[in-house]
């Protein structure tokens, strides 16, 4: 594993480059195919509304996959990830229009965990349309 960020160079509070990830219906269909999760709440508006959702929503795991990119782009090596987790607090609602939705991700180093293993905890803030869509979103990464 070869992270491009050195443990010695980060401090608690170091911010990772933030990102905004667009998501539209086509993206969800594509993710459904690649992941094998064909739950109709992720592509069928009629079904989604029937079960009480405002509209089609993104797969929670799609949102988690996008949020992880802020961490893996920072470290360079995705293999530097030691732990990654989140709680699905609110759905990312994806309307059937030209714009779709946006997943906004910011992240910062919350703790330096182990000087020997050079691991840090990164806390992520993940929102869409102003609402927090992932809670307790954290990653542990091993730095150089």
């Amino acid at each position: 594993m070869t992270a491009k960020i050195a443990y010695a160079d980060v401090e608690v509070g170091t911010e990772l480059p933030s990102r905004t990830f667009p998501v539209d219906r086509a993206r969800l269909v594509r993710y459904a195919g690649a992941s094998g999760d064909f739950n109709p709440i992720h592509w069928n508006e009629r079904f989604a509304k029937d079960v009480g959702l405002p509209d089609v929503i993104a797969h929670g795991m799609f949102t988690m996959a996008e949020a992880a990119r802020v961490v893996t782009d920072w470290t360079g090596d995705p293999g530097a990830l030691v732990e990654y987790g989140a709680r699905f607090t609110k759905p990312v609602v994806v309307p059937d229009d030209d714009a779709g939705a946006a997943i906004e991700v910011t992240a910062k180093v919350a703790k330096k965990l182990d000087d020997e293993a050079r691991t840090v905890r990164v806390d992520l803030t993940v929102t869409s349309a102003g609402a927090k869509v992932l809670g307790m979103s954290r990653a542990v990464v091993r730095l150089a």
């Binding site: 594509r30 993710y31 195919g33 990119r69």
Partner: peptide, 20 residues
């Protein structure tokens, strides 16, 4: 590609090897 992630470690064996 479905998640839009172009990190070469996912598609280029040489890039992955360079990372160990």
């Amino acid at each position: 590609e479905a998640i839009g992630d172009d990190n070469p470690a996912y598609t280029d064996a040489e890039a992955a090897k360079a990372l160990g």
